[in-house]
Design a protein around this nucleic acid. Sequence first.
DNA 1: ACAAAAGTGTTTCTGTTACACCCATGT
DNA 2: ACATGGGTGTAACAGAAACACTTTTGT
Lengths: 235, 235
Amino acid sequence: MLDLYNKQSKCLVALDSIIFGFDGEELKILLVKRGLEENKETWSLMGGWLQENEGLNEAADRILFEHTGLKDVYLEQLAAFGNPRRDPVMRTVSVTYKALLNIADYDHKLTNKISAKWFSLKKLPELLFDHSEMVALAVERLRANASLYPIGFELLPEKFTLPQLQNLYEAIFDTKFDKRNFTRKLLSTNILTKTDEKQKGFSKKGAFYFTLNKEKYKDTSSYNFLSLTNPDKIL
Amino acid sequence: MLDLYNKQSKCLVALDSIIFGFDGEELKILLVKRGLEENKETWSLMGGWLQENEGLNEAADRILFEHTGLKDVYLEQLAAFGNPRRDPVMRTVSVTYKALLNIADYDHKLTNKISAKWFSLKKLPELLFDHSEMVALAVERLRANASLYPIGFELLPEKFTLPQLQNLYEAIFDTKFDKRNFTRKLLSTNILTKTDEKQKGFSKKGAFYFTLNKEKYKDTSSYNFLSLTNPDKIL
DNA sequence: ACAAAAGTGTTTCTGTTACACCCATGT
DNA sequence: ACATGGGTGTAACAGAAACACTTTTGT
């Protein structure tokens, strides 16, 4: 039987991650310049190779850690890309992951070391190979997930204000929501806990901080927690 | 630079498809017994190897064609599975696809040749490797898609009755819908065209056949065409 | 005539949308 | 005092859910 396996052609397997971050204003993704290729000047997703004794998720975690120093990041498989000519150097299948992280957690020293940079989703540069396609898919999936699950919180710090949360959702869906309707909807899910601490410095009045109620958060009943399939008006 | 590529370990890439079919009553999936392994007696998904010069979708199409004789089947990538020990013979990454086909189109001569068999989703046998996990994911995605897009029609013959359509959706979601609400909702999408032909033999009264209005069907406005996120009562 | 499945309307209720003013604070 | 962003309620509307009887036809 080994023969049947040995006859088959093998292939390199790469992992590439679309790393989303939110700075309170805009939704961004983290891109790097790879030091190694002739396309030294081209921005690309963070990626690496699958090693012999690791699973795909494991490898994606490892690569993210190597690049950012972060562990326990929300990481979810998106899709495999396998056009035989996608990498001109050698046939490679790339398995893509989408990561959500709080920009404030991110270690800037590492950023500089590997020449990584956050880019606004609206002003992305040209990307390596088929990486633009990967980003487009990631955005699509992020939207789909964010309307079904309270997933967006991975992108926020532990304490956040309602205006921040609304900004985030507006950035994800590239639209505007009515403040009152948005607040009502979010509060009705009971996944938010109001603290009595106020944000200082940003606005004069200051907005109350909220935290995530993790009990409810994990509860599957928050499935479809926002019905954002028809938000006030999607552009 | 080639060095950097050549140092990396390569890996077999397999494709496995979860093939859904509907017989008017139950939702089924097509399984095969692979002739080649020591687990001759274990049912498994239809699968094959990625070849040197083909893309992933291309390979999935080819493998489906080789097994069933069918072309132009609805086929969509699900996910890659890459646990390093998932295939005990040799490290393999499997990219899975979900296929929807009309059981009546399926060629039974081929079926017998390769010892393939339709199994009710509710009575699946033990499956090879991690194939059960793959099936579970496929069902989950099928449900998600079927509530957002009028995808279920791929599973029906060209002419179908409203009761058949309802049976299909009930099978997908493993629940019951109210006949009147279901009919109203479906007809309101305008993707169905009533014919004046009636189904004979099954019921005494006979149900009218409908066909799919392909214009509307392709229209993206049918996005979220059924809001089946909260159907009458999901179990 | 009767059994078996097809077909059809109305009411209730819930959730979504649209909309405008006062509040708290820093300057 | 005023400018800036934070916070709040209500009415109209649309879509979902609940519900039962009549129709057709094969036996």
